[in-house]
Design a protein around this nucleic acid. Structure first.
Lengths: 383, 383
DNA sequence: TCAACTATCCAAAGCGCTTTGAAGATTGCG
DNA sequence: CGCAATCTTCAAAGCGCTTTGGATAGTTGA
């Protein structure tokens, strides 16, 4: 009976997240059969040196004679010594890990964009001796994860993905005193934090200018979710471009949703059904642009001929290069998200190792690359 | 002078990877300003209890009275106590981390398939109190990473991605005594290890049967890289299907490469240019299938009408559902790679916690889903 | 009532590193 | 030659947990 109560109570405790639940078992210190790992102790005994000296020799400190260092390094290699990670972490207070929280929701970042960013970041991490630590949780739990990371000292820093227009994570991380960098920016937070972003407004402004130069007057936007900062900025740039060119903003020519292929397909079909359809469409990502391409060809319209298209292109590694007859399929605004990951990782680690709190910020411009999807507007349609 | 030599030597050492290089700096134990974290010690002092009792209360051991446990839990929550990760790891010998090595090469796994797998795995990890540890390295360094993981006790287990026909990683991991699971299988290694795989041969055999039933006689295969186990099995299933149906195997109707959109595009164009083009094409992934779709429509051919298509579909989250007029665009063999990630994570963690070495293995069957891309062959072409 | 349990709790010993503070060994210089 | 300065090396003290091996108090049963 008492056992039963205890059991219930334990699971209640477990649910709190503060504690785990387990019954006493043969755990820890158990003599699990294992490839005998060499410890610093055994290595130093083998060498007839103190642990201090061996540790210093291996970690490159100057107060060790060259002869000794050589001996130590040789022995370490020969015995295949590798310092235990947890022990080193405990002693130094650093973990060599950068946290990434992946929200598992309908507009989640587990998508090619995220994968590419991580590919770039990971490349720098491993060069710098770091690893990426990933935690997949539902969006509403994300802040708890940061508290967990900070409280348990599980990571040396974190990367914030997909900032919203008004993102609470930034203030939280600041208060937790965890080094972090934002991939993107948040508008409503003061600018005092590290970020790496693309000039989204400028890019979309340019796309509009480019299309207007070709004679287009009815230009549509297939945007990302506008709760996200990047999408809001893109829309702002788009609208600014329209206004600067004396065009009116037409809400029926703008859509906003999670960026994927079917969305681009549906949105494009919607535009084509309008009484007065657009002559040009701007897509916020190559994925909906591909959907748009599919919709256009099914509707018997030719890309570039009937409808001009410009897409923002993150240069996702598995889609590149998307071309027809040697020319890029899409006229696009390009900025490599993988390169962004690489650079963001570098900036963050620099900040961690320098141990100063000055924020690092970088704003990248996207490149406009001409492809086959843009042409002067057809006379018949340039109403 | 001596300093200079030392410097050179240090960087040489650093390059070995065994040791790091740094000059003595104010490192570790430094009084970096930090949100004062509560330790077990301070918590137990606050409570007037021993660390033992507090630790046990929080970890759900039975030898603590309920009253005490309640007090401890309340205090822990109120003081926002969280056990230091490194310390707990050091004491228990487990890390709560599962390693994933991401090879950074031309046929790398940093692609949507990997992202989706990780999404699924991550979901289970966080439920079970684990995190994913990612390391991005060039392919030839992958084995060293496993040695590193094992030697430094950095992870509790690893997931092996993208096994080749003959994959050396399996034997290595066995010898390192690191729990692991393979997503896929390797042919040449004895079967004594954990894996989760899809019955690729059967799936492709079925695709062929299905097309033959519709009257197709010239069926092409756009396969993945056939050094990979999954692609080799798919080809085997494909060929088996042809033979079982009395068709001859035609090497000009089979291509093999890294699976992406442009590859599918190019391969399909190649088939269309043949003197005697296929009437049906099987794609090994939705990505090349989309490329194929693009090629077909550019060539004025209609999917389903002129050429029948079946694709293997990993149900990548950002592409689903790909449909036209409410019906799936592609007839496909479906098996969710995200679900596979979830299940593989579960199997691995089970193995780790059970601490037994019996391998867990699971073979999944893909579902055949009819879409708009398959029709009886046109009489005119059914030579 | 007293031995034999059982339920609670604790002091102390690790876990395997890094770093401090100091001691021994060498070298330099007047 | 003697003493200070400089190199090398070391013992020991953490880092913050978990777990062992008792000790103490409370219960039970004959």
């Amino acid at each position: 009976m008492l056992r039963a109560i205890l059991k219930v109570f334990q699971s209640a405790l477990a649910a709190t997240g503060i504690i785990g639940s387990r019954v006493r078992e043969n755990q820890g210190h158990e003599d699990r059969e294992t490839v005998s790992r060499v410890s610093l102790k055994s290595l130093s005994q083998q060498l007839g040196l103190s642990q201090t000296t061996v540790s210093r020799a291996l970690n490159g400190f100057p107060e060790v004679s060259e002869r000794t260092r050589e001996r130590v390094v040789a022995a370490a290699r020969q015995m295949n010594y590798r310092p235990n990670n947890s022990a080193a972490n405990l002693a130094t207070g650093r973990t060599g890990q950068i946290g990434h929280v992946i929200p598992l929701s309908q507009h989640m970042m587990i998508n090619p964009h995220f994968a590419d960013f991580l590919a770039g970041a990971g490349e720098h991490y491993s060069q710098a001796g770091y690893d990426a630590l990933l935690r997949v949780v539902s969006t509403q739990d994300e802040e708890d994860v940061y508290r967990d990371f900070a409280g348990r000292n599980r990571v040396d820093g974190v990367v914030v993905h997909g900032p919203e227009v008004n993102d609470a994570r930034i203030d939280l991380l600041r208060s937790l005193d965890v080094p972090f960098i934002v991939h993107g920016r948040s508008d409503t937070v003061d600018g005092d934090y590290s970020w790496l972003d693309v000039n989204n407004a400028r890019a979309f402004r340019r796309a509009v200018d480019c299309l207007v130069d070709l004679g287009h007057r009815r230009i549509a936007l297939v945007n990302g979710l506008e709760t996200m900062n990047f999408a809001a900025r893109r829309r702002a740039g788009f609208c600014e471009g329209l206004e600067a060119n004396g065009l009116t903003i037409d809400a029926t020519l703008m859509t906003s949703a999670d960026m994927n292929e079917p969305y681009g397909y549906d949105a494009t079909l919607g535009f084509l059904r309008l009484r007065n359809p657009p002559t040009a469409i701007i897509y916020a990502s190559i994925l909906p642009a591909m959907g748009g391409h599919r919709a256009l060809s099914e509707a018997g319209q030719t890309l570039g001929e009937d409808v001009s298209v410009i897409t923002y292109d993150d240069q996702l590694s598995f889609l590149r290069p998307l071309e027809t007859g040697g020319l890029p399929l899409f006229t696009s605004l390009r900025s490599s998200i993988q390169a962004a990951g690489r650079r963001a990782a570098q900036m963050l680690i620099e900040q961690i190792t320098a141990d100063d709190d000055t924020p690092r910020q970088e704003l990248w411009e996207a490149d406009l690359v001409l492809g086959r999807s843009t042409r002067p507007v057809r006379q018949s349609r340039a109403a």
